[in-house]
């Protein structure tokens, strides 16, 4: 998987992780992958739900030491 851009949204509270994720995805091209790092637990369900509503694909999602990692491919 080739990561085009990484967004570090650690320490930010809802809704900022999604607000910033949306901005970051607007800056990459179709088919490219955005990596997002979040610590807000609400993001666990909200980022996949947001991606789905916009048609983007969450290729991978993992948790390491309380940090959530998302890999989102732009539609």
């Amino acid at each position: 998987m080739k990561i085009k851009k990484t967004l570090d949204a650690k320490g930010l509270a809802c809704p900022m992780p999604i607000v910033k994720t949306k901005r970051a995805i607007d800056e990459i091209n179709t088919g490219e992958v955005l990596e997002v790092l979040v610590t807000d637990k609400g993001a666990e369900n909200d980022i996949p739900a947001w991606a789905k509503s916009g048609g983007h694909t969450v290729i991978e999602q993992k948790t390491e030491e309380d940090v959530l990692y998302f890999y989102i491919q732009k539609v």
Binding site: P15, I18, V19, K22, D46, A49, W50, S53
Partner: peptide, 11 residues
Amino acid sequence: EYLNIPYFELL
């Protein structure tokens, strides 16, 4: 009464 619209659809 209720309306449920996730915040991320209102950005």
